[in-house]
Amino acid sequence: MANVFSRAPIGLRSAVNEGAITRVSLILTAVVFLALFLIMPLVLVFVEAFRQGVGAYLDALKEPDALSAMRLTVTVAVIAVPLNVLFGLAASWAIAKFQFRGKNLLISLIDLPFSVSPVISGLVWVLLFGSHAALSPWLQAHDIQILFALPGLVLATMFVTFPFVARELIPLMQEQGTTDEEAALSLGASGLQTFWHVTLPNVRWALVYGVLLCTARAIGEFGAVSVVSGHIRGKTNTMPLHVEILYNEYSFVGAFAVASVLALLALVTLGIKSILEWRYGNQLASGHRH
């Protein structure tokens, strides 16, 4: 704590910095608050998961319903994330490289899912495809199952994770402008070549950042998928939903074991996110630069 330097001349130092006691007590308050409030719940997940030993922990993870929940979560993410990446690339290309009317409205609409409750993000699909909906007879006639099945889970996840990639790319690409692309095009590159060899490398770390956040949210989403899943064990339960079921059955070791896998993924996400911000901060949207 001694290495808090000031650029001010000696005489002013006390006036532009807090005294040592204030400084230490502010740091301690913040550290204690974060430890109690953020770190302790995380530690508890692992303590509870291993409460009955490593054997019980591994057994809980090897249970068929837990395995099928993991498979389903991965499947949903593998479908939803690439589609949102495709959207993010298209949206940022259109918004950053061209001028058109209604652009600000479009940007606001892309952020819309962030201000909608997860439960409502699931409800909208129930209203569209539920048994009382206008589409329902047609779906039944064609034997298409959307709710309480994979498509519903994917749609709900896509809605919730919709803005993540786009909102990382749009501000960065707007900042970068069009000069690089114009240079490549004037040298004879095709549109696709320009995109592939000029634009994409320019935004690659922001893209990785967006994909990371999008994937983390897709894996962890609870409220929206809870509404459309139908909670069929071993079939339509994603990992977070499986955690809920085990917890409500008082199978705490099982619930916290599956939760610990999710917590581990969250830690990995935070690790990669921090590395991206520290190493490639200048190549991310300006909000993430440290």
Binding site: V45, P118, G220, F222, P240, A255, A259, L262, A266
Partner: peptide, 9 residues
């Protein structure tokens, strides 16, 4: 980053 259900329990 932490799934809300995990935070919840």
């Amino acid at each position: 980053a932490l799934p809300t259900a995990v935070a919840g329990i």
